[in-house]
């Protein structure tokens, strides 16, 4: 019995992937810099379409809503912003002014 083996290959990543350079990227994105809106935004983030991002990937930090967008693919971030804006009764997001530098280690 012990010699019957069928094993999936390449299911785990190579050694070192947990290292700082190889962790899946995490970015911070300022979606709204207004203190008054942040709490609403944090609440709203829990109602974002699940296929874009999970609530556990959001974190409120002071006046920032930090989003781990590693789970957001392709145009997902733009869709995410639109959804959040709509949830805040149409409040527009100023993406040109709001972006923080990437936090991915260079």
């Amino acid at each position: 019995m012990a010699s019957f083996k069928i094993r999936d290959l390449m299911v785990t990543l190579e050694p070192g992937w947990q290292g700082h350079q190889k962790l899946p990227s995490a970015y911070a994105e300022t979606l709204c810099e207004s203190n008054s809106a942040v709490q609403d935004l944090c609440k709203a983030s829990h109602y974002v379409t699940p296929d874009l991002c999970k609530p556990s990937h959001f974190l409120c930090k002071g006046s920032l809503l930090v989003v781990n967008i590693d789970c957001v693919r392709d145009q997902g971030l733009e869709r995410l912003k639109v959804q959040l804006a709509e949830l805040l009764e149409g409040e527009p997001t100023d993406s040109s002014a709001s972006k923080l530098p990437s936090e991915t280690p260079k």
Binding site: L13, W17, L23, P24, A26, Y27, A28, K54, S56, H57, L59, K61, V66, V67, N68, D70, C71, L100, P101, E103
Partner: peptide
């Protein structure tokens, strides 16, 4: 890898 890292808190600079 994403399952493994799920519920990690996003980092900041």
């Amino acid at each position: 890898a994403r399952l493994y890292l799920f519920n990690a808190v996003p980092s900041t600079l």
